[in-house]
Amino acid sequence: MLLEIENLEVEGEGKKILKGIDIEIRSGEVQALLGPNASGKSTLAQVISGNPKYEIIKGKIFFDREEITELQAEKRVKLGIALTWQNPPAIKGVKLSQLLEKISKVETEKFDIGKDLLKKEINLNFSGGERKMSELIQTISLNPKLVIFDEIDSGLDIKRLEKVAKIIKKEFIQKGVSILLITHSGEILNFLKPSLINVMVNGKIICKEKDFKKVLGVIKKYGYEKCKKCKLLAD
């Protein structure tokens, strides 16, 4: 098992956000995490990547059999965990190429995506599509074992979504990198076909289902309200 999360409970700003999360991701596996807004998906992504803003009050996280619950963020990156941010902050005065020079574990000259972004200041006045591309370039440069994509599909039209999905397939899935796809709409799942889908509502995973089409169908038709009433609700 590459990533194991056991009974994780997390607080942020004095409020309990994650209420007992269990997730296991094998090497090379693609899983998805779906849920309504403010259900705790992004918090889980930030906690896995090591954001000290959140306090883990219970549970453990293991990566490659090593416990990383208390490990600093930069050390998790070195172990092979990468996160693409949903709303990455702008870093004024710092060009994307300058950051890549410092962090890249691969030859960035070979990148055939987003070359026009390299001379721009990181995330400053980027369009939605540019932000996603910048996140992808940075993540590729880290040569990770596991990538958490936090809403990489949000705000993209179908053409751009397809382009992003192609890059994820080529740069990660085909190379055996494990993926946790966090998504609200779920459209991207049709391109990337996860082997397991987790549905999170109100800080809990209430459903784990192999057939992503089935879950997407229910959510599209009834929204997450139906999930909350599901008989299989793991409560």
């Binding site: 954001n51 803003k53 963020a73 930069e74 990156v77 990455p88 902050p89 950051l99 962090i103």
Partner: peptide, 12 residues
């Protein structure tokens, strides 16, 4: 947020 963003890229 900026600080943590860069740390999530592997910088100390």
């Amino acid at each position: 947020e900026e600080l943590y963003y860069l740390m999530s890229r592997g910088l100390n």
